[in-house]
Structures are given as structure tokens and as C-alpha cells.
Write a protein that binds this DNA or RNA. Structure first.
Length: 156
DNA sequence: GCCAACGTTGGC
DNA sequence: GCCAACGTTGGC
């Protein structure tokens, strides 16, 4: 099942794409703005070195586009305290921050994006959280067999 | 504790 | 732009 070493994170490329990550200072960024408890809890489970599938949502086409890795474990997301930020949370206390972020670093971009359509047609991936009807989780675990299968697809 | 209303996500 | 699915909020 979930080994807690593999994850998938969604981002809208119009907001932050894998190219943006590759161009970031140190090819590293903080993953802010997660405001869903389940997604947050998964981020709290992340360890340095864990690997992450980078998924482009609201994209044409939606696809897994590459790999990143965790370089810093969960710490308070500063945007929750910033009144001017879109993700400001007035209910969160400095002494007890509600939301976390992690830092991730670019690893590589797949030669060809693995589209949602292509993933859906693959029987080996039918249990992936990403592909479940109505699934909107922006941070989710990936099993080691799913991970291996996806990397294999990415090599073709 | 229920559930209607609302806001968001994200594929299409 | 539409809308189904989902999560959260708040009145009761």
C-alpha cells in the first residue's frame, strides 16, 4: 500500500508550473496555500527525500509532468497570517498555526507528459486516488507499485 | 448533530 | 463557461 515515500501534488500551471519550479532559486519552492485538512495531514507525513509526482491541473491537457522531491518537512504556512494574502485564515493563531507547507525541489521533467486520459486508460492505475471519481485532493499518497508503473510509462 | 447553503476544485 | 462532486460553515 502507501509506503509514505511517494506523493502526488497538483498545481495549476497558470499559477505555478513545473517550469516555474525548475527556474526557482535553487530549483526549490515552498508549497503554500493548502487549505484542506486531508492534504495538510499528508504534507505533515512527508519526510526529506520523499518523491513527488508533479501534476498540472486545470491544464490542457491535465497531466503528470515530472518529479520533485521533499527537501524540508512541514512548517507553518506564513500566508495564513497575511491579511492581504488570498489564503489568509483569520481563525488560525500564531501560537497554534493551522496550516503547513513543505519545500520541494525540482528533479526532472518527463520527456512527454502523462495525460489524465492516458492514465485513466491504464488498468494498473485504476486505484490511484487521482483517478477516483470526484477526487479533488491536491496532495495525495501514491503506492510504490503505482510509482514504479508511472516511471516506467514516463520512459517510453 | 443535522443539513441547507455556500464556496472551491477541476475536468470537460 | 458549465457544473458535478466535495468540504466547510453556521443556523437550528
Amino acid at each position: 500500500m502507501f509506503s509514505k515515500n511517494y506523493w502526488l501534488m497538483k498545481s495549476e500551471p497558470s499559477t505555478f508550473s513545473i517550469d516555474d519550479l525548475a527556474r526557482s532559486p535553487g530549483q526549490t519552492t515552498y508549497w503554500d496555500g493548502v487549505r484542506n485538512y486531508q492534504a495538510r495531514n499528508f504534507m505533515r507525513d512527508m519526510a526529506v527525500g520523499d518523491q513527488v509526482l508533479f501534476y498540472h491541473s486545470n491544464a490542457e491537457p491535465p497531466a503528470i509532468v515530472g518529479i520533485a522531491k521533499v527537501v524540508r518537512t512541514a512548517y507553518p504556512d506564513s500566508t495564513q497570517f497575511d491579511k492581504k494574502d488570498k489564503h489568509y485564515d483569520p481563525a488560525s493563531k500564531l501560537s497554534e498555526p493551522r496550516w503547513n507547507m513543505v519545500d520541494i525541489k525540482y528533479v526532472r521533467t518527463f520527456p512527454k507528459p502523462l495525460t489524465l486520459d492516458e492514465l485513466r486508460r491504464d488498468p494498473a492505475l485504476k486505484e490511484m486516488i487521482l483517478l477516483k471519481k470526484g477526487s479533488r485532493l491536491s496532495v495525495q499518497p501514491v503506492t510504490s507499485s503505482e510509482w514504479k508503473h508511472i516511471l516506467h510509462l514516463a520512459e517510453d
